[in-house]
Computed example of a mutant assay.
Amino acid sequence: MSRVRIFTDSTCDLHAELLQRFQIEVVPLYVIFEEQTYKDGVTVNAMQLFDLVEQQDKLPKTAAPSPLDFEHAFGPVIAEGDDIVYIGLSSELSSTFQNAVIAAGSFPDDRITVIDSRTLSTGIGILVLKAAQAALEGRSREEIQALIEPMTAKMEVSFIIDTLEYLHKGGRCSSVQAFIGSLLKIRPIVKVINGTMTLTHKVRGKREKALQQLLDQALAMKEELDTDFMFITHAQALDEALYVKEQFELHTQVKNVYITETGCVISSHCGPQTLGIVFAKK
Rank of each mutant, 00 (worst) to 15 (best):
A103W: 09
K222Q: 08
H72L: 13
L120Y: 05
V192R: 02
I186S: 03
Q213F: 11
L167M: 14
P272S: 08
L238N: 14
H72I: 11
A210H: 02
I160A: 10
R21A: 15
L59I: 15
H269M: 10
T196M: 05
I259V: 13
G81D: 02
V244M: 15
P272Q: 10
Q98I: 10
Q253V: 07
K39V: 04
H168S: 12
E246K: 11
I102K: 06
I160L: 14
N99H: 14
V42E: 11
H15P: 09
I148Y: 03
T119D: 00
Q56A: 13
Y258Q: 02
S268E: 11
S182T: 13
E54G: 07
S95M: 06
L129S: 02
P188M: 07
I115R: 00
L120Q: 06
L147M: 14
L14E: 04
L183A: 11
C270M: 14
L219H: 08
L215S: 04
K202A: 05
T152G: 02
H269S: 09
A237V: 03
S175L: 14
K130M: 14
R21N: 13
V278N: 07
Q177G: 10
G181I: 00
L19M: 07
T8C: 08
N99T: 01
T198I: 10
L127G: 03
V77R: 04
L127V: 07
F107R: 03
E246R: 12
E34C: 01
A280E: 09
S158V: 14
